[in-house]
Computed example of a mutant assay.
Amino acid sequence: MIEPLRVLQTKPLLTASIPIKVPREDIHKVMGPGLAELKAVVTVQNVAIVGPWFTHHLRNPGEVFDFEICLPVATPVAPVNRVKPGQWSAMKIVQTTYHGGYEGLGSAWGEFMGTIKAAGHRTADGLYESYDVGPEASTDPSAWRTVLSRELVET
Rank of each mutant, 00 (worst) to 15 (best):
L5K: 08
S17T: 13
K21W: 03
V30M: 00
V22H: 00
L13H: 06
I20Y: 04
E3P: 02
M31T: 14
V7N: 05
D26I: 12
M31V: 12
M31R: 15
L5G: 03
T15N: 01
K21T: 04
P12F: 15
L14F: 01
L13I: 13
E3C: 07
L5F: 10
H28I: 08
P23M: 14
S17R: 11
T15I: 10
Q9I: 07
I20F: 08
Q9G: 04
A16M: 02
A16K: 01
T10R: 14
K29P: 02
R24G: 05
T10A: 09
E25G: 04
E3N: 10
Q9R: 13
K29M: 15
I20C: 04
T10V: 11
K21C: 03
S17D: 15
K29W: 06
P23C: 05
I27K: 03
T15K: 02
L13Y: 11
Q9T: 07
I18F: 15
H28T: 11
S17K: 15
K21V: 04
V7D: 03
I27T: 09
I18K: 11
I18H: 11
M31F: 11
V30R: 00
P19G: 08
M31W: 13
R24I: 14
A16V: 02
Q9V: 07
I20T: 13
V7Y: 09
V7E: 05
L13K: 05
K29S: 06
E3Y: 13
G32N: 07
P19C: 10
T10Y: 12
P4Y: 13
P4W: 14
T10G: 07
V30N: 00
R6K: 11
V7R: 12
S17Y: 12
K21S: 05
P4Q: 12
I18A: 08
T10E: 13
K21P: 00
L13G: 03
P23Q: 11
H28G: 09
P19V: 15
T10L: 12
K21L: 03
L14I: 03
I20P: 00
L13W: 05
T15P: 00
L14A: 01
M31L: 09
V7M: 05
